[in-house]
């Protein structure tokens, strides 16, 4: 792999944002995700190659370490920060169409529920995997999802719920959305949710963590 991209991968993996950031200590004084991305672009490396060979694999690696319990939420959030520093320079190519996103993922915590830590992690990881993410926040109603789908036709939808009392709101949202957008695919997640429950309420998939979610989304694309 290109050496620059290899370095960029390491920066995102360990959360090295830019030259000024003192963390991690063994990389102090070195360039971070921000500078390396600028350099890569200046050297003529295609933005899509930067995504595919550095940013996406780095976030996949972090997601895997999280799944295995080797890192926890703060480390993952720092990697996401480094990735975002890089994305700032890649984003213009998304809008110009030069870099194709894999698709759009609309996600929100269902109405009645305020737990958002897990959902935020999913947002960042899915974005890091090359998707456009539309975050509807917490306490999101069916109407909000319908509106977002009107704006982003063809998007996939993720629902998060952490309470047994609000899990059932997932079904309400799926049913209402399907009345307007019958073909939309739903992935559900959150601690109390299971694959059985997902099937019961008519969701198209259940994901236990962000890596799982990304696999499901890619599965939809290839179906």
């Amino acid at each position: 792999m290109n050496e620059l991209l290899q370095k960029l991968f390491t920066c995102v993996e360990f959360g090295k944002i830019n030259t000024a950031s003192p963390y991690p200590p063994q990389m102090r004084g070195q360039e971070g995700a921000q500078e390396l991305t600028q350099q890569a672009l200046a050297e003529g490396i295609a933005p899509s190659q930067i995504m595919d060979e550095a940013l996406i694999p780095a976030m996949t690696c972090v997601g895997q370490k999280f799944t295995e319990g080797k890192v926890f939420v703060p480390q993952m959030l720092l990697s996401a920060k480094a990735m975002n520093a890089a994305l700032t320079y890649i984003k213009p190519y998304f809008s110009s169409g030069e870099v194709k996103r894999k698709g759009t993922f609309i996600i929100g915590t269902v109405f009645g529920d305020l737990h958002d830590i897990g959902k935020n992690l999913v947002c960042m990881m899915v974005e890091g995997a090359g998707w456009e993410v539309v975050d509807l926040g917490v306490d999101a109603s069916a109407e909000k999802f319908i509106e977002a789908l009107n704006e982003h036709p063809g998007a996939y939808v993720g629902l998060s719920a952490l309470l047994t009392t609000t899990m059932t709101n997932m079904k309400t949202i799926i049913d209402k959305v399907h009345e307007v957008h019958p073909d939309v695919k739903f992935i559900v997640g959150g601690a109390p949710v299971s694959a059985e429950f997902a099937a019961e309420i008519g969701a198209d998939g259940y994901a236990a963590d962000p890596q799982d979610d990304i696999k499901l989304l890619e599965g939809f694309l290839n179906a």
Partner: peptide, 9 residues
């Protein structure tokens, strides 16, 4: 679970 005293967190 963040006991790395140099970590930004």
């Amino acid at each position: 679970h963040m006991e790395d005293t140099e970590h930004p967190a």
